[in-house]
């Protein structure tokens, strides 16, 4: 039994203009000790998926259906009281923006101890010791002094470390990290990713990492979920996604990336803009931007089908497998050839 099992998750928001289908039938699962990477453009529903699992969407105007089984209990149908016991304790979340997700008027030590006191039966002193221990673990220098500082006294990278310390303070089984390094410089990003890896080895937590940086996904994730316009369009183990991508959108993402290990004169670009989720395109939602579009794509939405020859690799595309293999090989071979000359 998987640690978290999400089945046919749908999140719809009612707005004045109509219903926005922000997440439309997402299914995935994650085991203990594994890392799942969710990639996609802004507005593809990556963050909303995770917010829904955490029960953090505003109740008003939100319709949620499907199941999110965490240790065989459905998080979606759970009462507020029970959910609060799980949140911050068994499941923790790191938010994207370290500048705005800490409370600016409380010392970070107090914010950290609050998390411990809420979920564990310990004294304030013990909680503070735990907070200190975590600040040291995430590599905050002079933690004894910094514990009584306010968030504005920390730099961006240091604040993100505080966020990670807060998320890990109750040894969560599942850690959801929403773009944890997007706001940071590359050198700081390397520090933070290192840290998350180390902590995972130590605590054996499962991690869901949401990002639009394919480099980060390639290096940290075991499995990958590619989302486009509220749907999963491809999913599978990281090696298969990068060595045998089977969906034109994934090709576009890989090709549009300028990369250090390859020389590209001209980037592959995905033409057009991501569609509105108020009125998503008919059939395959990627068809208006897809260079391989066929008539069938405009009418029927392709289901996620297993990719023959691969294990646990699924893609949603009407193209026949031969064409997909040929095109994927062409794309990747182009990159390799360029890497050699460059």
């Amino acid at each position: 039994m998987a640690l978290l099992d999400v089945r046919d998750l749908k999140t719809y928001f009612k707005t004045d203009d109509g219903i926005v289908k922000a997440v439309d039938g997402v299914t995935f699962s994650i085991e203990k000790g594994r890392t799942l990477g969710i990639v996609g453009e802004s507005g593809s529903g990556k963050s909303v998926t995770c917010l829904t699992i955490m029960g953090l969407n505003a109740k008003r105007n939100t319709i949620t259906t499907g199941e999110a089984l965490f240790k065989e209990q459905d998080l979606l149908g759970m009462g507020m009281r029970r959910l609060r016991q799980i949140r911050g304790n068994d499941i923790a979340m790191i938010f994207q923006d370290p500048m705005t997700s800490l409370n600016p008027v409380h010392k970070i030590g107090n914010q950290l101890t609050e998390a411990v006191l809420l979920h564990q039966d310990v004294t304030k002193k013990q909680a503070r010791a735990r907070a200190l221990e975590l600040l040291k673990a995430v590599g905050i220098p002079r933690a004894e002094r910094r514990v009584d500082d306010y968030p504005h006294q920390f730099s961006g990278g240091m604040r993100q470390r505080v966020m990670i310390a807060m998320a890990l303070i109750n040894d969560p089984d599942l850690l959801i990290a929403d773009e944890p390094t997007t706001a940071l410089d590359v050198t700081t990003q390397a520090q933070i990713l290192n840290l998350m890896n180390k902590l995972q080895e130590e605590f054996g937590s499962a991690i869901i990492i949401i990002t639009h940086d394919l480099g980060v996904v390639a290096e940290t994730a075991d499995d990958v979920l590619v989302m486009y316009a509220a749907e999963v369009v491809e999913q599978g183990p990281v090696n298969q996604i990068f060595s045998r991508p089977h969906m034109p959108y994934t090709w576009g993402l890989l090709g549009s990336l300028p990369r250090l290990d390859a020389e590209t004169e001209r980037l592959v670009q995905i033409t057009g803009q991501p569609p509105s989720l108020l009125r998503p395109p008919s059939g395959c939602r990627f068809h208006p931007r897809c260079p391989y579009v066929m008539d069938v794509c405009k009418q029927t939405d392709p289901p996620l089908k297993p990719v023959t020859g691969d294990i646990d690799h699924y893609a949603a595309c009407h193209l026949d497998e031969e064409t997909k293999d040929r095109e994927a090989t062409k794309l990747l071979a182009g990159m390799v050839a360029e890497a050699r000359t460059g």
């Binding site: 990003q189 390639a218 990281v238 990068f242």
Partner: peptide
């Protein structure tokens, strides 16, 4: 050395010099 490489094999061999 800190730039992630979008390749699961090459990327994991990379040893960043962490400042």
């Amino acid at each position: 050395s800190a730039v992630p490489i979008p390749d699961p094999v090459k990327g994991r061999e990379r040893k960043p010099v962490v400042l």
